[in-house]
Computed example of a mutant assay.
Amino acid sequence: MLRSIDVCLTPALLNLYEITNSIVVVIDILRATSSIVYGIDNGAEAIIPVAHVEDCLAYADQGYLLAAERNGEVVEGYDFGNSPFSYTKEKVGGKTVVLTTTNGTKALHMARENAHQVVMGAFLNLQALCDWLRVQDKNVLLLCAGWKDKFNLEDTLFAGAVVANLRQDFTHLDDSSVAAEDLYLCAKSDLRKYLHKSSHSHRLAQLNIEEDVQFCLQLDVCQSIPVLEGNALVALRA
Rank of each mutant, 00 (worst) to 15 (best):
T10R: 13
T10W: 05
P11A: 09
L13M: 10
Y17E: 00
E18V: 06
N21F: 04
S22G: 03
V26F: 07
R31V: 00
I36Y: 05
V37Y: 06
V37I: 10
N42R: 08
A46N: 09
A46Q: 12
I47A: 00
A51S: 15
V53L: 02
E54T: 11
A58Q: 13
D61M: 11
Q62T: 14
Q62I: 08
Q62P: 01
G63N: 11
Y64P: 08
L65T: 04
L65D: 09
L66R: 08
A68L: 06
R70A: 08
G72Y: 02
F80G: 00
G81F: 02
S83Y: 03
P84T: 03
Y87L: 01
K89R: 12
E90T: 09
K91W: 00
K91V: 05
V92S: 05
V92C: 05
G93T: 02
L99I: 03
T100A: 04
T102Y: 05
T102Q: 01
T102N: 06
N103Q: 05
A107C: 06
L108N: 04
H109I: 04
M110E: 12
A111M: 10
E113F: 08
N114P: 07
H116A: 14
V118M: 09
G121T: 07
A122W: 05
L124Q: 09
L126Y: 10
Q127D: 15
Q127S: 15
Q127I: 07
D131T: 13
D131N: 15
Q136D: 11
L143I: 04
G146M: 09
W147V: 08
K150N: 13
F151P: 02
N152W: 01
L153C: 04
T156P: 01
A159F: 04
A161H: 02
V163Q: 06
Q168M: 07
F170C: 03
L173K: 06
S177E: 02
S177R: 07
A179R: 06
A180P: 04
L183T: 00
Y184A: 02
L191S: 11
K193I: 02
Y194L: 09
H196T: 14
K197P: 06
S198D: 15
S198K: 10
H202K: 15
L204Y: 12
Q206Y: 05
Q206T: 14
I209G: 05
E210V: 08
V213L: 14
L219S: 10
D220P: 00
S224N: 11
V227L: 08
V234F: 11
A235L: 12
A235P: 10
R237K: 15
